Structures are given as C-alpha cells and as structure tokens.
Amino acid sequence: MARREVNPFVKSALEYGPILLFFIAYLRLKDRTFSIGGTDYEGFIVVTAAFIPLLVAATGAIWALTGKLNRMQVATVILVVVFGGLSVWLNDDRFFKMKPTMIYLLFGGILAVGLLRGQSYLKYVMEEMMPLQDGGWMLLTRRLMLFFFGLAVANELIWRSFATETWVYFKTFGLPVAMFAFFMMQGKLFQDYGVEKDEG
C-alpha cells in the first residue's frame, strides 16, 4: 500500500487519543470493582481490557489512512496485546505495568545490536525527518539506547515502588515528557552534525 499524507491533527489524535482515554477512564473507574462471570475485576483491569482493542483499532486506522506503520507502532501494539491480555486473563495488573519496560528494553536492545555491528538502525527510521552525518547518527543512537534503558529501569522502579495511580500518571505524562525533553537536549548534536537538504 502506498504511503499517503494525512491530516497531522487526525494522526496525532489516533496516536495519543487511546492513551488519554485510558487515563480518563482510569481516573473515573479506579476505585470501582466489577464482577464479571463470577470474578471481581478492579477498575484498572477493566480499563486495560477496553484499551487493548481501542489501541488496535486506532493503529489500524493509522495504517488505513497513511498506508504505513513504523516498527515502533507495530511492536507497541503487539506488546500491549500480549501483556495487557495477560493482565486481563490472569486478573493481574503487573503484566500491563511491565509493558513499557519490555518496549524500552526491546528498542534499546535493537539499537545496541546495530551499534555492535557498526550501524545506526535509528538512521533508517528517522533519516527523512532529520538528516545527519553518520557520526551524528551513531552518537544519537548511542544516547537514545542508554535513554531507553534508563526509561525501562525508571518504569520498573515506579510501578514496583509506588501506587498504581502514580504509575498511570508517569506512563501518561512522564514518559512522553521525558522523550520530548531528550530530543530537545540534542540541539547541539543536530547543529554540529546536521546536513542541509538539497533544494530542487
């Protein structure tokens, strides 16, 4: 399927809408318990059960509109289905809380494999968005690899040490803000290693 342009607002709504809806639903249902099929489920588990198909549908809509999904989106959906499904099936919220850890370990590990092979896999994903010299890509990849591993550790510490509500705030706002801050802090790297696009 050919890649197509889509309204940025629509794309952002499909990417971040499920996460915000998860957050809102959690705040509304966190103190409630639901009895389904003779089993009691906390609000967090019920919200997780609703989030899984919502994310799958939103990702499917992105693919239908743009004709393409990046590897991060595909990996995220798979891990949400697996770990979210385990949480619902076993009625245990720990699996879903571990999902960000697995995502960041996976991404960090993939970048690490590329670096060991003398390659920047990040370049293949982001080169169109920000052209850099090869040295810049290697440096950015190394930094992002360490950042991903750091996020994995942070997620483990927070979900194991704090209440579920604290983890939900961290996942909904802390992780995106941390990612934004990371790239904002790479300004000097982009300046030193940036490559001007050819015009015409």
Score class of each variant (00 low, 15 high):
47 V>L: 12
49 A>H: 04
49 A>I: 07
49 A>L: 11
50 A>C: 05
51 F>N: 08
51 F>E: 09
51 F>M: 07
52 I>Q: 00
52 I>Y: 06
53 P>N: 11
53 P>C: 10
54 L>N: 07
54 L>S: 05
55 L>H: 12
56 V>N: 05
59 T>V: 08
60 G>V: 05
61 A>H: 02
62 I>V: 09
64 A>M: 04
64 A>Y: 01
64 A>W: 00
64 A>F: 02
65 L>E: 03
67 G>H: 00
72 M>W: 15
73 Q>E: 12
74 V>P: 00
74 V>F: 07
75 A>W: 10
76 T>G: 14
76 T>A: 15
78 I>R: 08
78 I>C: 12
80 V>T: 13
80 V>E: 06
80 V>S: 09
82 V>W: 07
84 G>L: 04
84 G>P: 02
85 G>P: 02
85 G>H: 05
87 S>V: 01
87 S>Q: 07
88 V>W: 00
90 L>Y: 14
91 N>A: 10
92 D>C: 09
93 D>W: 12
94 R>M: 15
94 R>W: 15
95 F>R: 11
95 F>S: 13
97 K>F: 13
99 K>R: 13
100 P>L: 07
101 T>V: 12
103 I>P: 00
104 Y>H: 08
105 L>C: 11
105 L>V: 10
106 L>S: 05
106 L>W: 05
108 G>P: 01
109 G>E: 05
109 G>A: 05
111 L>K: 08
113 V>K: 14
116 L>A: 15
119 Q>S: 15
119 Q>M: 14
122 L>E: 02
123 K>E: 12
124 Y>P: 09
125 V>E: 12
125 V>L: 13
133 Q>D: 10
133 Q>M: 11
133 Q>N: 14
133 Q>I: 09
134 D>Y: 14
134 D>Q: 15
135 G>V: 03
141 T>S: 09
142 R>G: 13
143 R>I: 10
143 R>V: 09
144 L>N: 13
146 L>M: 15
146 L>T: 12
149 F>D: 05
150 G>K: 03
150 G>P: 01
151 L>R: 00
152 A>D: 02
152 A>C: 04
156 E>Q: 15
159 W>L: 09
159 W>V: 08
161 S>R: 14
163 A>E: 15
163 A>W: 08
163 A>N: 10
163 A>T: 11
165 E>A: 14
165 E>S: 10
166 T>E: 09
167 W>I: 06
167 W>R: 06
167 W>S: 01
168 V>I: 10
169 Y>L: 11
170 F>I: 04
170 F>V: 06
172 T>Q: 03
172 T>M: 04
172 T>C: 02
172 T>W: 00
173 F>H: 03
178 A>Q: 01
178 A>T: 02
183 F>T: 04
184 M>C: 13
